[in-house]
Design a protein around this nucleic acid. Structure first.
Lengths: 220, 220
DNA sequence: GTCTATACTACGATAGAC
DNA sequence: GTCTATCGTAGTATAGAC
């Protein structure tokens, strides 16, 4: 746990994270990973028993980084609308900070058929972290609907839509860059995207005659 | 062009579309395609000169199906807010009708590093269809902002967010099914998702004191 | 237009020397 | 903990018979 700075294990995870994000599970060969780390291909198997395990360990690390920052927001007190804004802000910051996160996450959210069929315990661990985040966010939406702050939308469908709205921009790479005219992770693009997501989701979700008396956070 | 119903070529395209949607470009082998069609592996090369060309032909067909339905909406007269709703409705219908579309599209929207490096003319064709759809939608947003019907958001960033919000649900497969409690393409899930997307995007985009006098389409 | 056979490369994974 | 060597399989693609 108290490893020396940048053990081989960590270097492998870093390199694999970058490659899996770029080309997906099936698109990356272990030889490519090994070369980028500066090891022989066989050495990888001393740290991870299979490619599948390596992948889910990478995914678990990414999900853990996000949960670490978002879970406290769910636990803290506050109005649903406030929490929604804070979670969106934190999530978008996390996606912006690490270029690989959004792609890895987006892939994981809709790729489930890639793997040979092995059970792999790390997969279940990653799944539970994701479930926790979704149920936390679902609770916020539910509370907001009950209190009348949010429109009476389906929580599950709103979650699905929010996931897509939040994650896609940071994964859109070349297409997004062409559309925006600057790298999607540039400071200005990130600021504009946060603003846009907040406008669309906060105002899209807010009940017509808002019961809460807070001012518009999207004007900041 | 006037082929007999279900030529080998069409069968290959259908099968490849289903497989590429499920497992991605790198995750599908031509042997798997050939077996599912009922041909030998080598016979595929009589219809498509490479795996890459097959992929982009599949992608082009999918994009063409969408453009065919959405382009007329851009060309027709109408208020931006009206057009926005009609485009969202049509797009969501198209995504719901063909289970493979959303996944194939989502992959194509953020995967650009998968291919060996060949130029492939079909790639450019697909790209142009996509660019046309995006610029059409961008024009609607721009017009709406100018007329005061929409908030003053960045068009490019709104497009990015809308893409994610619209497409993700229909690609979310197992995860979405667990979240919603029914297949994401079931009639009820599709109806609820259309309702949710319309609420979030229409109201999220509508200017605070709407200049247009139309009633709320999300109450239908 | 489909087949068999084949070329060549890469894959994930293992064995065992050091 | 890293290496070389190797196994067995599967990848894309081509050649040529039918």
């Amino acid at each position: 746990m108290a490893d020396s700075p940048a053990s081989s294990r960590d270097k492998i995870l870093d390199v694999a994270e970058a490659l899996f994000a770029r080309r997906g599970y099936a698109g990356v060969g272990l030889r490519e990973v090994a070369d980028a780390v500066g090891l022989g291909k066989s050495s990888l198997f001393h740290h991870f028993k299979s490619k599948t395990q390596l992948y889910f360990e990478v995914l678990g690390r990414v999900l853990g980084r996000i949960e670490e920052r978002i879970a406290p927001i769910f636990a803290a007190p506050g109005e649903p609308a406030e929490k929604l804004d804070r979670v969106l802000d934190t999530l978008l910051d996390a996606l912006a900070e690490h270029p690989t996160t959004a792609r890895l996450l987006l892939r994981a959210l809709f790729e489930e058929d890639e793997f040979s069929g092995e059970p792999c315990p790390e997969e279940e661990a990653a799944r539970q972290v994701l479930d926790g985040l979704l149920s936390g966010m679902g609770a916020v939406l539910h509370a907001g609907i009950e209190s009348g702050a949010f429109r009476d939308v389906s929580v599950a469908h709103a979650l699905q839509t929010m996931m897509g709205a939040c994650v896609f921009h940071f994964a859109s790479g070349e297409l997004g860059e062409e559309l925006i005219g600057a790298p999607v992770l540039s400071a200005s693009a990130v600021r504009a995207q946060k603003h846009t997501v907040r406008q669309l989701l906060h105002h899209g979700l807010a009940a017509p005659a808002a019961a809460s008396g807070e001012e518009d956070p999207c004007r900041s």
